[in-house]
Each structure stands twice: as C-alpha cells, then as structure tokens.
Amino acid sequence: MELLRQQKAKHPIIGDIRGVGLFIGVDLIKDEATRTPATEEAAYLVSRLKDNYILLSTDGPGRNILKFKPPMCFSLDNAQQVVAKLDAILTDMEEKVRSCETLRPQP
C-alpha cells in the first residue's frame, strides 16, 4: 500500500487507496472536488495492465476502483513490478491528455 500511496502523490487521478493485507482498492477519480468516477480511465488502465500480464479488475458503482487481490505468494518484488508498470501507464495517459488540444481547458 505504501508503494501505491507514493503514486497517489504523483498522479492526481488516484483519489484513495484502501484495503487490508493483500486485498487493496485504488479509487480513480476525474477531479478532487467532485470525486467523479474515472470509469473509462480505469477500464483503459486495466486493459493496458492486462497487455503486460498483470490482471486486475474494476469494482464499485462507478467501475472506477482498481481491485488488487494477488496470490499469497506475491512478493515485494512483484509489488514493485506492478506499481512500476502502473506508474508508466498513468504517466503515458497523462501525457496523452496534455498533448490533446481538444482536452485542454479553453480560456
């Protein structure tokens, strides 16, 4: 969970991280004020992780919560690998949004 909390500080799409043991949920939001669920972004992220052989699912009423439930043999090295890939994909998503003129706020 600490590795994910470090990502929360880096990526504003991460709204909350909660869980017990290996069962962890990461809430993806569109903005901090309204806490609008980032449903499409969550689906995209799960798909990209699947392409990298990392299986997660979404949960919650907005289908915006990444659900981590790894096997008991999951190690710290495995956690670091998953979080590194998560960071890379989120960074890529953020760069694509920033580079898209249609998504930039108009003055």
Rank of each mutant, 00 (worst) to 15 (best):
I65H: 06
E32I: 05
L76N: 09
N52P: 10
L45G: 06
K50C: 12
L45S: 01
D59Y: 11
S57G: 12
A38S: 05
D27T: 01
Q80E: 10
Q81K: 11
T36F: 00
I29E: 00
F74Y: 05
L56W: 07
L55N: 11
Q80P: 05
S75Q: 07
P37A: 09
N52T: 13
G62H: 00
E41W: 03
I29H: 02
V83Y: 02
I54K: 10
I89Q: 04
P37T: 02
F68R: 02
N52G: 09
S57V: 11
E41Q: 13
G60R: 06
A38D: 03
N52F: 09
V83E: 02
L56P: 08
K50V: 09
P71M: 06
C73E: 03
N78W: 04
A79Y: 06
T34P: 06
T58K: 13
V46M: 12
E32N: 06
Q80S: 11
L66S: 05
I89V: 06
L66Q: 05
T34E: 07
V46C: 10
T39H: 13
I54R: 15
L76G: 06
P71Q: 01
Q80Y: 08
E41G: 11
A43Q: 13
M72I: 07
N64A: 08
D77F: 11
T58A: 14
Y53W: 15
R35W: 03
V46Y: 04
A38H: 00
S75Y: 02
Q80C: 12
Y53R: 14
V82C: 02
A84D: 11
E41M: 12
F74L: 03
D31M: 01
E32D: 04
G62W: 00
D27F: 00
T58R: 13
K67G: 08
T39P: 01
S75M: 08
L55F: 14
Q81C: 09
T39A: 12
L55H: 12
G62I: 05
L28W: 00
N78I: 03
N52E: 13
C73W: 02
P37M: 08
E41R: 08
L55G: 09
S75R: 10
R48G: 11
T36N: 00
K67I: 05
L28Y: 02
A84N: 04
N78F: 05
V82T: 02
P71K: 04
S75W: 09
Q81I: 12
D59K: 10
L49M: 10
S75T: 11
G60Q: 07
T34H: 07
A38R: 02
C73V: 08
E40F: 07
Y53T: 15
L76S: 07
E32K: 06
D77M: 13
Y53E: 15
T39E: 12
A33S: 09
A42E: 05
